[in-house]
Each structure stands twice: as C-alpha cells, then as structure tokens.
Write a protein that binds this DNA or RNA. Structure first.
Length: 565
RNA sequence: GCGCCAGUAGCUCAGUAGGAUAGAGCAACUGCCUUCUAAGCAGUAGGCCAGGGGUUCGAAUCCCUUCUGGCGUGCCA
C-alpha cells in the first residue's frame, strides 16, 4: 500500500528537519523552533518535482530572511540515500526538489506488486460505514436526480472501500406512511375509473396523477379483472398497495442493476413499524421530556437541540411523520446494526432536513450523540436538451426517468457524466452525453486504454513480453513526457485518499482524464517499436503500468475498460 | 427575514486545507498520419477569479460586506 507521494513528502520534511538541526548544532539557527513547512507539488515541473515552502514559513519565527534561511538549509542538506538527486532554491525562497531515476522505478514496482489493490490504504482501519443512497420513493419511477445520487453514492462507497473501510450499501424503501397511503388511493381511483369510467372516482388532492399510476392500475386489472370492484375498500387498497410497491421496487432494482449499482440491503421502512421500533423510539423521546402535544399532534422540541424549529412526530390523524421514522431508522443504523459511521446521500431539497436532523442527533437519550452521521448533499441536476432546459415535472409526466436515460446513453457515459463534478449544481447536457465521440471525456480515457491494449498486442506479436519492473532501467525513462506520466501514475493512492476523505469521487474522473492525457502525449512523443531493446522494454513496461492504472480507476467508477475501440 | 449551496475563458468545470506567470476539456483558428489506434498530438487566441474591504512575506483559496442565481424554512418525503 505504497503512497509514494506521501512518502516523498515525509522524506523532504525529514531532510529539512535534519538540515535545520545540523545548522542548530553549528549555532547558526536557534533551536527548538517547530515549523510545519508544507511540501507540495508545483504546477510547473520546472519548479521541481516537489517544493517546500519551509523557508518562507520559518523565516519569521527564525528571524531570518526567507532566501537567506533557504541558503542556510540548503548548505546543511544532504540528499545522500534519498530519492532525490537535486535540490535548489527558487523564487522567494522555495526549496525545489528533483526526483532521481530510482524513484520512478519504484512507482512502476508498486503498481506491479499491488495490482488491482494499487491505490488502497488503511485510512478507514476497517471501520464499518453505511452509505445510504438513492432511496427513491417506491411510489414512482426514478428520475435524473436519482441517477446522479446513484452514481455519487456508489462511487463514494467504492472509494471508501479502497480506503480501508468496510462499506455497506443501503437503499431505504419508503414502503409505509402517508405517501404510500396516497399511492394506494391513487391506484384505487385509477382502477375504479378503468372499470366504471372517468367519473367513478377521483384522485386525492395530494395523490399521484402520473401516467405510471394508470399503467399500474391497468396491469392490476389484467391480473385480477374486476375481482376487487366490490371488495372492502380497505382490503382493496391494501392489495393495490402491495401490488404497486412490489412492482415499483422490482423496477428500481432492475434499473439500478443495469446501471451497475448493487446494494447490500434494501431496508424496508415498514419493518421499523413491525418491530415496534418507531413506537419505542417515540416513547424514549416522550419519557425524556423532549416532546409536547399541540393541536392534537405530537411535537419534538427540536429547538432545544439547536434547531430553528420544532418537528411534528405524530400527526393529529395518528400517523407518524417521515421525521419520526427517520429518527428510528438512524437509531437502527447505529444502535441496532452498530455502524461506526453513516453517510446519507441526499438531494439539495433535503438539506434543511439534514441540518435539523443533525440537531436531533444530539439528544442523549437516543444514544447517537457521539456517532458520526455525515450528509452528502448534492445540488439538483439541470437537464439540457437542444441547448434548452428540460423542466422536470412528475405531474406533467414530462420527467425523464433513469431507464429512459439508459435507453439513450451508455452506462459508461452516464456513470462518468454524473460523477464529473462534486456535489454542486450539475448541468447534464443530454446532447453531449449521447455523443460517442471525443466531446465525451469518458471516451478519451477509454481510448487511451484501448490504444495501450492494441500496442501491447502488437509488441507481443513481435516477440516482446512486458518485463518485470526490476528488469528495466528506469533511468532510460527520462523524457519530460515519461517523467510526467510516471508522476501521474504515482498519484492514484493520494487521489483515492482525498476522494475518501472529502467524499468526492469525482476526483477519480479528473485523475483519469489527466492520466489519459499524459499517456497520449507520451505516446505521441516516444515511440516504442523500433527502439533499442532496453528502452523499448522500459517503455513497454510503462505503457502496461498505465493500462493497469487506467483499468484500476475505471473499475473503481464502474466504467468499462475496453480493449478495442 | 433566516439557513444551505454556488458565482473562475464564449460553454462545462478543475484549482489537492494560503504559494511561484490562475489550469483542463469543448467550441474557434493553424499545423501533424507511407512507421505502435488521428476517438490522438502540437500551437494560436480567449481572464478585473461577481464587486468592495480586511488578515500576511503571499489570497481564486481565510474573515467581513454587497450583488446575482438555485434550494430550503409543510401535521410532504
């Protein structure tokens, strides 16, 4: 699990610390001054492979001019036995370090040795983390927003797994409560309309008016005929509810699976009612004195925990609210199932809920006050077609569903496009996503992979096998394009580390674009076939390493790595 | 009103807990295939990092403030 970048950073920090101590010994600098000089990778390689701002940061506490201090450090700095071959002072006092050839060889060795695990770390130390995502209401079809949430959640989970967490992917099925009741009533109305004409029944005011409800009623009719026409309405609705939910949940499972998303668990909201856990949780809050009754409803005194308003837990009609069940659900995640950390991926329209729920979490009686619940709030997706915004409206039936989308564009393109940026506002341009050409960056990456595969085949036919990392001379890989490429290869572990830390898997997309770009530039500048054997073998090894890392990253994102295009 | 997210090239976006001359991709223009995939590469052009203050050696980045946009502030989920 080599993070060669981090190792290089630590090495530089140690080299400077040693130089500082050595200057102290000679009485040139005061002792005991702790300065955390930052080691960074300069934007331009002419400023070194790594640069330390130590002299800039330490100038004041050491009472020296930055440039002067840098000279002093440099004079006491020994690169003997380090991965660096050269260090110099530049600009206002940066210490710029240049890597030696052996370091480049180490990168290729690490990729070879670690294989598909390259980039992994033990950051999570095996902690059990649940990522709950999509959790679309089973009263309808999944939207573009769910498509984004699916990719974001799945990719975040993948990145956390690679970073050493034990990850559990969960879909929360809202198969109980008010919305489901509305769903059943809407279905019932459509069923009755089907049998007795439009005027026979009316969809409830807050019901579901979409075409999908009509279709579901039609299917129900095809199976049961008019058997439920004269049945007890409560029984009829129960039957239709069950039918509708199971149909919709199956559809979601199918669509998500087609999308490459597989859950460890589909958790039923209804199970929280059945186990009495909702009731128990409410009792807990009531016993603790955190609730009050007002106008026939039971309220949670959430302002006592710092929220901006109180929440209704039980409506005056006796039904529990989403909020109440959500408290029970999160208690279940932490206290029953024992997750160390829980991440909820939510749409921006739920951010208010996230803020208020965080307040509720601090109620000590719930047993979650010291637990980690993180929210990934993604801004809404704006859909663009023919350069114009497509208004998403469930009611008008104009919304584009996840399965519509997958009929239009490849899973690879969708997974890439929805992970193209962090959680902020995303503009999804259908016209670009549909295109299978260079306008679509996913093909840029896949093309690099396919190009290398073809290259490897050609060389194999010519009798050259990919050598072991130990067998090549890394000093031969000295062209700027080769060095840049290897440095980018070395960055995957760091990228995964940051992606896991910040819950930002879109870093991997950007990383892969950069890696593909570095490869294409290398490919253009450096030939392989026809070179002297040592150089040919070194470059062959480099190409194979790039292929492996591209595959590695694409796998992480659930995107295919084609061998030919 | 209050809260959350945002404002960087014509468009879509990066900018790795403050670093050196602000970067990609697309679109535009100019070149590069008799040799490993041109779905590629090289180059040109394109910027008051929304505006204004502050913090310091140094700010797109941190603080304050104004403006603009999206979302939230339901006995909806």
């Amino acid at each position: 699990m080599a993070n060669l970048i981090q190792m290089a950073r630590e090495e530089i920090a140690a080299l400077i610390e040693r130089a500082y101590q050595s200057a102290v010994q000679e009485g040139l600098l005061p002792s005991g001054v702790q300065v955390a000089g930052k080691v960074e990778i300069p934007k331009e390689s002419k400023n070194g492979d790594y640069a330390s701002s130590y002299a800039l940061a330490a100038a004041k506490p050491l009472n020296k001019k930055p440039r002067e201090l840098a000279e002093l450090i440099l004079a006491h700095l020994s690169l003997e036995g380090s991965g660096f071959e050269r260090v110099e002072i530049a600009g206002p006092g940066f210490l710029n370090f240049y890597l030696g050839a052996a370091w480049y060889g180490k990168v290729l060795s690490a990729i070879e040795r670690e294989g598909a695990a390259y980039g992994a770390s033990d950051m999570g130390k095996g902690a059990r983390v649940m990522v709950e995502f999509v959790s679309a209401n089973p009263t309808g079809t999944m939207t573009i927003g769910n498509a984004r949430g699916g990719v974001l959640g799945d990719a975040t989970a993948a990145v956390l797994e690679r970073a050493g967490y034990e990850v559990h992917r969960e879909f929360y099925v809202n198969d109980a409560g008010n919305q489901v009741e509305m769903f059943a009533r809407s279905l019932e109305a459509r069923y009755l309309q089907l049998l007795q004409g439009e005027g026979a029944a009316e969809i409830p005011e807050d019901g579901y008016h979409g075409e999908d409800i009509k279709e579901l009623a039609q299917r129900f009719f095809e199976i049961h005929g008019d058997a439920f026409l004269s049945a007890d309405p409560a029984r009829r609705r129960e039957e239709m509810r069950r039918f509708g939910l199971s149909h919709n949940v199956e559809k979601m499972k199918t669509d998500l699976s087609r999308y490459g998303i597989h859950y460890d668990q589909w958790f039923l909201e209804s199970s929280l009612y059945e186990s009495g856990y909702v009731e128990e949780t409410m009792q807990l809050l009531t016993d603790a004195g955190h609730t009050y009754e007002k106008e026939g409803a039971l309220w949670l005194c959430n302002t006592a925990f710092g929220a901006d308003k109180d929440e209704v837990l039980r409506r005056s009609n006796g039904l529990y609210t989403y909020y109440a069940v959500d408290i029970a659900y999160h208690r279940n995640k932490f206290c029953v199932r024992g997750f160390d950390k829980v991440i909820d991926v939510l749409g921006a329209d739920h951010h208010g809920h996230a803020v208020r729920f965080a307040a509720t979490m601090t109620a000590p009686e719930l047993g979650m006050e010291d637990k980690t619940l993180d929210f990934i709030i993604m801004q809404l997706v704006q859909l663009l077609q023919d350069g114009k915004e497509v208004k998403v409206s469930k009611r008008s039936g104009k919304s584009i569903t996840l399965s519509d989308l997958l009929d239009e564009i490849s899973v690879d393109a969708a997974r890439f496009a929805f992970n193209a940026k962090p959680t902020n506002h995303l503009i999804f341009d259908l016209d670009i996503a549909v295109r299978e050409d260079s306008e679509n960056p996913v093909y840029y990456i896949q093309y690099a992979h396919a190009r290398i595969c073809s290259l490897l085949t050609r060389l194999q036919e010519a009798g050259y096998a990919v050598p072991a990392a130990e067998a090549i001379n890394p000093a031969l890989l000295c062209a700027p394009e080769e060095k840049a490429l290897i440095k980018t290869l070395s960055q995957l572990p760091e990228e995964i580390h940051f992606a896991a830390r910040d819950y930002d898997p879109s870093r991997i997309n950007r990383y892969l674009v950069a890696l593909a770009g570095d490869f294409h530039r290398f490919y253009n500048a450096c030939r392989i076939q026809g070179e002297e054997q040592p150089l040919l073998l070194a470059r062959l090894k480099l190409a194979e390493s790039v292929r492996a890392v591209l595959k590695n990253g694409l796998d992480l994102l659930g995107i295919s790595a084609p061998e030919a295009m």
